[in-house]
Design a protein around this nucleic acid. Sequence first.
DNA 1: GGTCGATAGCTATTGACATTAGCCCAATGG
DNA 2: CCATTGGGCTAATGTCAATAGCTATCGACC
Lengths: 195, 195
Amino acid sequence: MPRAGLTETRVVEEGERIADEVGLSGLTLAALAERLGVRQPSLYKHVAGTDGLRRSIALRAKTELAGVLRRATVGRARGDAISSMAWAYRAWATEHPGRYAAAQRAPVPGDLEDERASADVVQVAFDVMAGYDLRDDDAVDAIRGLRAALHGFVTLEAAGGFGLPVDINRSFDRLVVGLATAFAEWSDGSGGGDR
Amino acid sequence: MPRAGLTETRVVEEGERIADEVGLSGLTLAALAERLGVRQPSLYKHVAGTDGLRRSIALRAKTELAGVLRRATVGRARGDAISSMAWAYRAWATEHPGRYAAAQRAPVPGDLEDERASADVVQVAFDVMAGYDLRDDDAVDAIRGLRAALHGFVTLEAAGGFGLPVDINRSFDRLVVGLATAFAEWSDGSGGGDR
DNA sequence: GGTCGATAGCTATTGACATTAGCCCAATGG
DNA sequence: CCATTGGGCTAATGTCAATAGCTATCGACC
């Protein structure tokens, strides 16, 4: 009986494919093993069970997303950077729904590698906010707002929560532009850090 | 052997409690049966399996949430109404995380009761937007943006996605006010329905 | 080329959970 | 008092995760 030649990378990548095709909840070790031509328990030689597999997918997804966002912002500033980043975020999430869902789990405290990957995503947004002269708490507020809006939009869209036959791209654009405008107003003194 | 005296309502309410206590994913028929002092298969006399139970919880959650939001908006208008509704939304979601999660599933097409309950929630937001003179597509854009922001914020908060030690209430307030301001600008001609 | 150790993949087993089939007895109404 | 309804039960099946322990393959090294 010849070996299947699995590696952790091959297992995780096939898991990503399943997650994107049938949703994260449809990613089972049974389905994964079948796709790899192997019996379920064999997977434990390469990944630490369901939890380990999901963590690996999350880690890679966060890293990839951070790169996508970073590339979307180079050479752009302020509202231009925010819009570009927002569209890149939505596009990636839409194209990779399973990976995106996996990336939502917050790292378990003490998991330095995961904490690092999560921070990388946030760092892109931080850098964009610096272009607005938003710093410290103001930047945190803006990032939280932007993340919430993007994550909520993408999630609702994926769940079919936008039932009405109205152009979704237009809704998204107006939301992003509206937020960018709000951030711009925060930065010029009117609604600064005191409340 | 005396009867347990279950009804559909009792079963669903206990299910809601479990979901809020341990999360929607922790709501199993096994756990529910144990809490009710009954064997698993007995539950099938009252609810249609896991799917039916979750649907019932979702239905009740949507109805309750719609009522909460409605009460938060009476006697208020424009930004005041939006803020009040937003805070009520977040408070309810935070206090009832399991029910809130259950309410996120979109109704299966043709499930009129569920479609009705879902529409009730949206209707509250529609009525608020009418106070901004936002109608039709403009109102849809605004509602999608608001829903996305609220849902995203609440979800990220519940998942522990806001790691930094910065006041979350303040971040939420600024997001809501920022959106309300953006909506106000949409309504006075500057960014109307053409794009 | 032969040997040996590490380990990939296997079978077998256990345990949680969902679900269906079919039984029996309790409650209710005539 | 009896008949019907239906609530709760046991038994059984299927899916999936996970662990234990075996075997044989592969690569390193002599």
